[in-house]
Every structure is written in structure tokens, then in C-alpha cells.
């Protein structure tokens, strides 16, 4: 079964292009562009991994991390942002995110992180 990835980013060109690149690589990837739609999607079909933009209209990343974990504790969260504050990295990890990447991202590095997070989730919840 394909690994299910949900990309949550208000930059729709980024989200949709990254989703296509993951689809080509046999991931079950989908992009949504606001927090509300992300929550609906996570409730309906919890993803293995969420790639979450730190700052989105209608939801700052930290509160969104908590909301995702409440709905789907198994889902791993990798923050992806253009915001460069080190404090935000620390806050995101303390609030439950499992990883962090700064835009622009390297696809190989992203794939490595996705695989690591997926393996971690399978080790805990096989």
C-alpha cells in the first residue's frame, strides 16, 4: 500500500507541484491549501505523514500541530517553511512535530525524512 502524504501549504503552486513529484514516486500524495480543509482530510482519511507549512492563514503552525495530533496521533508531522526563525524550529519540535525542513527543499532529503518517519510510525504502530 502506498504511503499516504498530505501537503498543507497555502502556496498552491508549491503544494500541487510537490504532490505531483511524490505521486510519480508512488506515494499517495495530496495537497490542500488551508488548515480547515486539512482537518477535514485528516478526519476522513488520516495520512501517514503531513508536510505542514508553519504559517498559514487561519492557523499558526503550532496550534495546527496539536490539532492534527488530537485527530490522528499516529500521523507524523514534518514542518516545511520559508520562515527562518530557529525559535520556530524549537517550538515546532516541542509541540509534537517530528521534523523540520526549510524551503526551498531538496527532494532527496525530503524522501529520506519521509521514509525515516514512516518507518518510525510502523515500528510503533505496525
Amino acid at each position: 500500500m502506498s504511503k499516504k502524504i498530505l501537503i498543507v501549504d497555502d502556496e498552491d503552486e508549491f503544494g500541487s507541484t510537490l504532490a505531483e513529484r511524490l505521486l510519480i514516486r508512488d506515494y499517495d500524495a495530496k495537497a490542500v491549501y488551508d488548515v480547515e480543509k486539512a482537518m477535514i482530510e485528516i478526519r476522513q482519511s488520516p495520512p501517514d505523514i503531513v508536510l505542514l507549512d508553519l504559517r498559514m492563514p487561519g492557523g499558526f503552525g503550532m496550534s495546527t500541530i496539536k490539532a492534527i495530533k488530537e485527530i490522528s496521533p499516529k500521523t507524523k508531522i514534518l514542518m516545511i517553511t520559508g520562515h527562518g526563525s530557529q525559535q520556530n524550529v524549537k517550538d515546532a519540535l516541542e509541540n509534537g512535530a517530528e521534523g523540520f525542513m526549510i524551503k526551498p527543499i531538496n527532494i532527496e532529503e525530503l524522501l529520506d525524512k519521509i521514509e525515516t518517519l514512516y518507518n518510525q510510525s510502523q515500528a510503533i504502530n505496525p
Binding site: 503552486e13 507541484t17 505531483e20 513529484r21 504559517r55 520559508g82 526551498p104
Partner: peptide, 21 residues
């Protein structure tokens, strides 16, 4: 400047993903 660099990183991220695709 922090807001702008955030924006420009987003532009570059889209460019990078697009060239990647």
C-alpha cells in the same frame, strides 16, 4: 526583511519544485 525573505524563499521553493518536476 524577515517577511520578504520568507516570501522569496517561497518563490524559490516553487521554482525548485517546478524544475524538479
Amino acid at each position: 526583511i524577515a517577511i520578504c525573505t520568507h516570501d522569496i524563499r517561497n518563490h524559490l521553493a516553487i521554482i525548485r519544485e517546478s524544475t524538479g518536476l
